[in-house]
Design a protein around this nucleic acid. Structure first.
Length: 596
DNA sequence: GCCGTTTTCGGCCCGACTGTTTTCAGTCG
């Protein structure tokens, strides 16, 4: 049976949606797009669901009805979908490639194909260079220039990543966005500048950045803000420049939008531009059901009137006011994915998420004993400055030879140094003895139990044999975390965003074993790891597997990354009670396995 | 094509900006 991954299924559905959109068919494209999105976000493989429950199981997926379920079934069974192939044959254009070009949508692609025979990026470039596009009805000189300009970017974004448009890693991008925020905050007359969009929701990757600014309604202030924004260092392209909205592209390829709003609409606008889209649509549907209307200017009573001020304003100045008007508790941005937060907010059952200042310790730190850059004492001092009360030194073990991993002899030597630092920094911070112990191919550990039993915290992790089959990898990890000395499973899936896929692991089984054995799952704060990711974190929270949020610091600057791990934990609905290093040191230690 | 605490039929989120336009379609988020 041909194996269709969720990604393949989503691509097929999205493709059909795009072809239908090209033909100006109403509503169907949105249905396909919606279904594709849901499949993309599915934790379980749709093919597995089909195997277990047949086509009925597929139809139970939200957004999937009879017709789409049949197409998924066909793809799983035969590896292809006739309907999709017929659509492709009718209009043989590379839609995913062409729609990466800024300003080019399905309608334009269709026209370019019909009038000029443009099927792909190369054709498009040829036609533009030859000046054919400017002469087309509905297009002009400017459209042609715009297309030429963005072809370069489209080529770039196509080369690197899977699944179309480039995604930017949150932790690597947020500092850039915050710099733009700071520049805008310095503009006279601007009272508030907020980062919105997926960056505010702290998604592990973001597609673009949205910034919201509040101006007192004075035209000159707005103009100054826009001017400052357009002059952001590193701008390569101004995509739009209007009275309330401007949009730029940076050298990095990141698109940034700025919207200027009046104070009375700030809450509604922030909510609107924070998203997610699904969350907003769900809210708007509730508004419509009540006979109200929700847009970026506010929540209004009279739904029949269109435009900015549609009837009597119910709420809009703050987000709190907005959610209250719906009879909901305030929903933290990290939760706004329409995955149950709206229902929970209505029922007043939202969790109290772990806070950004709630960590007391850090359970994974490397030093210059292996591949870290700083000494144990330096790392300890800087951790204290960062507000931590305890840290665990977890240098690599001997199997990781290139890091000069510790063997039995050297790790014992390290304990003496830790004792010395503890004495010196008494009252400032406590340094615990730990290890990032390699999991060998057969699931045994790289240090003997006699050593591991003497450590305060043992982390175990996979650094080799990433390509084992799902069954073998799962068995390997299972054996490792069943070891009574293995306290924490470090960066469990091993994925590195945009670079290395996650290892094949039956996460359901691993988390079940973790629950049974009391093994803690790590949320690794390295922005490109963000491992575990949000959906698995939520699974842990649901079944009671404890978490730790660790910097995996290799130098003291890396403590700053803790923010991103906390964000990830919040996206997974985690509270302080779920995260062991949010607890005092004695309670944390007491919660670990007693293999020693 | 999907969906249902008004509905199994008739809806489907909504507004800003751009370019090519003398009033609007396409794109985007």
């Amino acid at each position: 049976m041909p194996d269709a991954s969720n990604q393949t299924i989503a691509e097929m559905l999205r493709g059909i949606g795009e072809y239908l959109a090209m033909q100006d068919i109403p509503f169907k494209p949105r249905a396909y797009e919606k279904a594709a999105q849901v499949i993309d976000g599915l934790e379980e493989e749709a093919a597995e669901m089909y195997k277990k429950g047949g086509i009925k199981a597929l139809e139970e997926i939200p957004g999937v009805g009879k017709s789409i379920a049949e197409k998924i079934e066909e793809l799983i069974k035969t590896g292809r979908v006739k309907y999709y192939e017929e659509l492709k044959k009718k209009t043989p254009v590379d839609l995913t490639e062409l729609s990466r070009v800024e300003g080019l949508g399905p309608k334009s692609v269709k026209k370019l194909y019909q009038k000029l025979g443009v099927e792909n990026l190369a054709d498009l470039e040829k036609a533009a260079v030859a000046g054919k596009i400017g002469k087309l009805e509905g297009f002009g000189k400017k459209s042609e220039e715009k297309i030429l300009k963005s072809i370069g970017f489209a080529k770039q974004s196509g080369a690197g990543g899977a699944g179309g448009g480039a995604r930017f890693i949150l932790g690597q991008t947020l500092p850039q966005i915050r710099a733009i925020q700071a520049r805008l905050e310095a503009v006279a007359g601007i009272s508030k500048v907020t980062i919105a969009g997926s960056a505010r929701r702290c998604k592990e990757t973001i597609g673009d950045a949205d910034i919201l600014a509040v101006a007192g309604g004075k035209a000159d202030v707005v103009a100054r803000a826009m001017e400052t924004f357009l002059k952001t260092p590193g701008v390569v392209n101004v995509i739009a420049h209007g009275e309330t909205k401007s949009s730029i592209k940076l050298k990095s390829g990141l698109n940034v939008d700025l919207r200027v709003v009046p104070a009375e609409s700030y809450g509604a606008a922030l909510n609107y531009f924070t998203g997610s889209k699904d969350h907003n649509v769900a809210l708007r549907k509730i508004a419509v059901a009540k006979g109200w209307r929700l847009n970026e200017y506010g929540l209004f009573k009279d739904a029949t009137r269109k435009g900015k001020a549609a009837g009597k304003l119910i709420a809009g100045r703050t987000e709190e006011e907005l959610y209250a008007a719906f009879g909901m508790d305030y929903i933290e941005p990290e939760l706004r994915e329409n995955t149950g937060e709206i229902e929970a907010a209505r029922a007043h059952k939202l969790p109290k998420l772990i806070g950004y200042k709630d960590l007391q310790g850090d359970l994974q730190i490397q030093t210059d004993w292996t591949d870290g850059a700083e000494s144990i004492e330096q790392m300890a001092r800087k951790a204290a400055e960062a507000g931590l009360k305890y840290i665990v030194i977890t240098d690599h073990t001997k199997r990781l030879a290139m890091t000069h991993g510790l063997d039995e002899k050297r790790i014992v030597q390290q304990w003496a140094e830790i004792d010395r630092v503890n004495k010196k920094l008494a009252g400032k911070i406590r340094v615990l003895k730990g290890s990032e112990c390699d999991i060998l191919k057969d699931g045994s550990l790289d240090l003997p139990d006699s050593i591991l039993a003497k450590l305060d915290v043992v982390g175990v992790s996979v650094h080799s044999h990433f390509n084992l089959s799902r069954a073998d990898q799962t068995a390997r990890v299972r054996r490792a975390i069943e070891n009574p000395n293995a306290d924490v499973f470090f960066h469990p899936t091993g994925r590195i965003i945009n670079r290395r896929a996650a290892i094949e692991l039956d996460m359901d089984e691993i988390l079940t074993v973790a629950k049974k054995t009391g093994t803690v799952m790590e949320i690794n704060c390295f922005p490109e790891r963000a491992d575990l990711k949000d959906e698995y974190i939520r699974h842990c929270v649901d079944i009671g597997v404890k978490l730790s949020i660790d910097s995996d610091a290799h130098n003291s600057k890396h403590y700053l990354n803790l923010e991103y791990g906390i964000a990830q934990a919040r996206r997974g609905w985690a509270t302080r009670a779920d995260v062991i290093n949010a607890w005092p040191v004695e309670k944390m230690l007491g919660s670990l396995k007693d293999g020693r």
